[in-house]
Nucleic acid binder design. Structure first.
Lengths: 169, 169
DNA sequence: CCTATCATGTAATCCGTTACATGATTAT
DNA sequence: ATAATCATGTAACGGATTACATGATAGG
């Protein structure tokens, strides 16, 4: 019997990625996350090694280890894993995100907004351009959900640009 | 000699609160955070017990313990603490916040946006109203930085309302 | 008075970050 | 060949969340 574990957001990210990508190594997951999801929910690469292990031990994933060479580990989602993912996807939530913006934190405690605004504007502009490029290149072929989140990211960057523009000196 | 410690965001929050509020107990801090900052950067109450202890041990805070009754601990920022806070306030940053939105995460992995949108709209509307009430009541007398972050929160809530409105069925 | 809730704190666990390490591949 | 970078993984540590616990106060 696999010991019972709690599934957290990181767990569902791993399940979700594996469900979409099929069998993958932690390194594949890392690349996958970096390419898309990581823009709005980033993970340390070490978590993509430890979390699949945890999930496999509890039966949500199956694990296959290469017999020669690097002995890399390959993970695949199981029926149990797919069920857990689908249950989670089916549940709505009224949990709201927090801004958790470091620059804003400084402003809250009385930092001069001017210099912060200059720096943040540059960073947000770069991010916005990156998103727009992705959207342009990926075009129509990306999954609907992924596109929606990308558009959310774009809207969000524009919003921050407006915000910090008002604080520039 | 106080042992050297790393200061993280939580540290600066404690320093910032104590700098603004003067001598406080962890419970005071908890109330202070809940009332304002907590809206965009929340903390567990246990952190407001452990972090001041850490900071005091390293000389950023002084600690006074009641001699009778509950023996509550009162913390006050020291010169060293104030210097650290001011240094931090003076540094700009190009670190960008992440959305880390749970509902969006589900959409990314293919959840039906409709029911999520309904629920999120209700939650965001409530939050927006709460902020507007605070802004109205607090009026002119809140510190500039606090007001700015509150306005950022309001803009942000409006943005999310627009976003989820487009996904309602 | 009794109960519920607020106030206050500590302890245990879990998770995320950082650091370390080494094998493989590409560029010079 | 050598150095640099990419790929892959583990271990240690620190911090955040959760659980537990008890004292004070207010409402019924």
């Amino acid at each position: 019997m696999s010991s019972e574990i709690r599934l957290n957001n990181t767990s569902y990210i791993v399940l979700g990625m594996l469900n979409a990508a099929g069998e993958s190594t932690p390194y594949d997951l890392k690349l996958g996350v970096a390419a898309s999801l990581g823009n709005f929910w980033s993970l340390q690469h070490a978590q993509l090694y430890s979390e699949p292990e945890r999930l496999a031990a509890a039966g949500y994933l199956s694990e296959r280890r290469e017999q020669k060479g690097r002995r890399r580990k390959h993970y695949k989602i199981t029926a149990k894993g797919r069920r857990a993912l689908e249950d989670w996807l089916g549940e709505t939530t009224d949990e709201l995100p927090e801004l958790r913006d470091k620059a804003l934190l400084k402003v809250f405690f009385g930092a001069d907004p001017g210099p912060l605004a200059t720096r943040q504007l540059a960073a947000h502009r770069a991010k916005l351009e990156e998103y727009e490029r992705i959207l342009e290149l990926a075009g129509e072929q990306i999954p609907k959900g992924v596109r929606i989140t990308l558009e959310a990211g774009i809207d969000n960057e524009r919003e921050w640009l407006r915000f910090w523009s008002g604080l520039e000196e």
